[in-house]
Design a protein around this nucleic acid. Sequence first.
DNA 1: ACGCTAATTGAAATGGGTTATCAATTTCAA
DNA 2: TTGAAATTGATAACCCATTTCAATTAGCGT
Lengths: 143, 143
Amino acid sequence: MSKHQKEMALLKEHLGKHQLKYTRQRELILDAFLKQEHITAEELYHQLARKDPHLGLATIYRTLNLFCEAGLAQARHFGTQTQYDNVSHKGHHDHLICTECGKIVEFENCDIERLQEEVAARNGFVIKTHRLELYGLCSRCQH
Amino acid sequence: MSKHQKEMALLKEHLGKHQLKYTRQRELILDAFLKQEHITAEELYHQLARKDPHLGLATIYRTLNLFCEAGLAQARHFGTQTQYDNVSHKGHHDHLICTECGKIVEFENCDIERLQEEVAARNGFVIKTHRLELYGLCSRCQH
DNA sequence: ACGCTAATTGAAATGGGTTATCAATTTCAA
DNA sequence: TTGAAATTGATAACCCATTTCAATTAGCGT
């Protein structure tokens, strides 16, 4: 019995509406996907290789894109790869990055998020996710 | 005589520091690049094809990456392509991005920037630049 | 101005991530 | 259970970007 009842129901609802089918692979991928905050197709592929060595990479990509259409995931392009964010996992954090030593500090700021919503509303947008990165020098690298 | 004295000086400073050379191609690409807010390598390639049909795409990519290292440009991955933002054009410009149709709205918000400074200070950082992207649906794509 | 060395270039090959193709398999409604 | 339609896995194709490499060019010292 799965621990992800709500998400599985959402997926099945989407499948039903679009004449799509509920398969063993989609269940496997959903369970693995929901355990993380965000993941790439390749990472998921390697994780699942132990459970089912015959599960193809193409199926992972197809299924992750399906999750995006169903509203369970959101694609985010980062570097050369695509990160698939787990929408049900709300703990979003932004990053402070030191351009000198590479140190990364995670933070969360409600006030910033509220202002983001205001900016979006002013432009008729509805925000699904965001990305905020502050680049600079950490205390040790300011010499 | 170029209209982009400041940026050209910045580039030459970077070149000097790294034993790189100032070439006709780099000057051509810089002039064209600075005329836009953001552009892809392919677009720049086609724009410049008229001025110099022999200018290779690889050179465009190499030069845009050079601009990023020199602080004149900033790479931003959207969809399958990379957008190169003109940093000098508007200091910091942030983006509202529609994940459905790709529409991009640029904005600036002093309050957000101030809060960013506060977060940075609290963590001992001095910010040099930042990147803020809000992903969602524009008014037309919300149904 | 000349020559030398190292950086740069253009063209093409290569690379990495993602999507399309297609025959075989599986789902699910009738 | 049966059959039409969707899905799968393997692989080829794609696209954007980077690397390779021989030929060219910049820029220093002379």
